[in-house]
Amino acid sequence: MAWPISRRSGPTCGRSPCVARWTPPSPDEGSQLTATASYPAPPGAAGGWLLPPRRGEVPRLRLFCWPYAGLGASLFVPWSRAAPEGVGIYGIQAPGRESRIAEPPLSALPHMIERLTAALVAEPDLFEAPYALLGCSFGAIAAFELARALPRAGLPAPTALIVFACRPPHRVQPVGPFSALSDDELVGRLQRDYGGVPDELREQRELLRLFLPPLRADLAAMERYAPPPANAALACPVFARGGADDAQVRGEVLAEWVRWGAPGSDVRGLAGGHFLVRDDPRAALAETLRTLGYRLS
């Protein structure tokens, strides 16, 4: 399905004017999406904050992707393997998970953004080509705040922000407090509200103990989140994507993201639920590439 809601400045042929600065690859470029991500992954970039692409090429477009609350950059390893030539997928790896499991997770979004921005400022080569930002649920709000912070730090602005399964900043609802919930109560509530906790994770207590600290930290960051003023729209378009079966982010709410983006912003509904990026990575990647003017073969 598609919600026919947009904020366009003119015909874009399905592509934002802001992403017309690079040349999309030919339709026969690209590779098949693999079903699972492997770990360990290559060493991180930007002080461990980025999981770089699997290929060594210099991309024409970089896409920095922030995962769902509690998850790590390996969510985007299948995307990195399948992305067409010229597109570099960089998963954002916050402390406390996967390759950074030994570090304490951060529970304040401004602190996360400050540290990641400083790490990216130290890697100016990452910004020699155009880049876009993408985030899933909690990661969408984090990516939005990163899009605001990077130009303030003297880096180029992103050409686009793509958000999946997230309410816009002014409609973020308190998701807790979770601090008073036991592990079982927390997992039960998340499963009831979002249906996103795999059975194998709930049944393996050791894995659950590794997963819960960064999850709690990300949820605490959302509890404390204060949106910017209403006049703080981004200079780039925002492309909001949501699952038709996502009971937590309805289409009419998702549509309000357009007020936070430049002309060309739009909203589309996709098959799936809240975790559509995790559950159907090929479809989510294909939609992302289509939005940016590329094609998944």
Score class of each variant (00 low, 15 high):
111 H>Y: 03
118 A>P: 07
100 R>M: 01
100 R>Q: 07
104 P>C: 02
129 A>L: 00
102 A>Q: 10
131 Y>M: 01
131 Y>P: 06
127 F>L: 10
131 Y>L: 00
114 E>F: 03
101 I>V: 15
129 A>W: 06
125 D>N: 11
131 Y>S: 03
119 A>G: 10
107 S>A: 06
108 A>Q: 05
115 R>I: 07
118 A>S: 07
111 H>M: 02
116 L>E: 06
128 E>I: 04
114 E>P: 05
116 L>Y: 05
116 L>P: 03
114 E>I: 01
127 F>C: 14
107 S>P: 14
118 A>R: 11
122 A>G: 13
131 Y>N: 02
116 L>S: 05
121 V>A: 11
112 M>F: 12
122 A>W: 09
100 R>C: 10
122 A>C: 08
118 A>T: 00
105 P>F: 00
133 L>K: 08
117 T>K: 06
128 E>Y: 01
110 P>A: 09
101 I>R: 01
117 T>C: 09
132 A>M: 10
111 H>K: 13
114 E>V: 02
106 L>S: 08
101 I>G: 00
103 E>Q: 14
103 E>H: 10
114 E>R: 12
130 P>E: 09
125 D>C: 11
106 L>N: 03
108 A>S: 11
125 D>W: 10
100 R>H: 11
117 T>Y: 04
116 L>A: 06
120 L>D: 15
121 V>G: 13
130 P>Y: 13
117 T>V: 04
117 T>E: 15
116 L>H: 07
115 R>W: 02
110 P>T: 12
129 A>G: 10
107 S>H: 09
113 I>K: 06
109 L>E: 00
126 L>T: 13
113 I>D: 05
113 I>F: 03
103 E>M: 03
126 L>C: 04
102 A>Y: 12
117 T>P: 08
127 F>R: 08
107 S>E: 12
124 P>K: 00
122 A>M: 07
117 T>D: 15
120 L>P: 14
125 D>R: 13
129 A>D: 10
114 E>H: 03
112 M>Y: 14
108 A>H: 14
103 E>T: 13
113 I>Q: 09
132 A>L: 12
112 M>S: 09
120 L>K: 01
132 A>V: 01
108 A>T: 13
127 F>G: 12
120 L>V: 07
104 P>D: 02
104 P>S: 06
